[in-house]
Amino acid sequence: MSFSVSERQRWMAVLARASLDELRTCLDAASPLPPHRRLRGPETGLIMLRGQAAAVGDRFNLAEITVTRCAVSLEGGTVGHAYLSGRDAARAELAAILDALLQDDATKPAWMAAVIEPLAAIQAENEARQRRKAAATKVQFMTMATTR
């Protein structure tokens, strides 16, 4: 297995941001998923969100968020994990299976190409569109002194 923690963090983040529909669209076009065994969950619970006073000071508890987690193992013994905001059990299970497949050198390239890169591209485009919409509302305020 050759992957860095930051690589794994990236694919887990991409999976966390993807909707079930987007995931299924990628998976429908890919080869079938191998059999897996559930080690835990999928189960829904809460994580406490935190903020910081004035964004940089003391931490405070803001509110909770629903989270669904799942752990699975593949036939070779690789264990995959997922923690996703929301209550979608199917999504968490698919993300855990993909996390396991992406840790295996033999299966990683195919799943990166079939799932992670297309999802990352969708997410990048969504963010870019939000940024373009925000840019269209950029405003230049002028005080009377400068307009005189």
Partner: peptide
């Protein structure tokens, strides 16, 4: 929410890295 277990707490939200949709100031134009 009282029916759900708590898995832990998140890192403080990094609002400095926010993907802003709106951001205004009434003191510095």
């Amino acid at each position: 929410r009282t029916t759900l277990p708590r898995f832990g707490h998140a890192a403080p939200l990094d609002t400095g890295a926010m993907r802003v949709q709106r951001r205004i100031s009434a003191v510095f134009k």
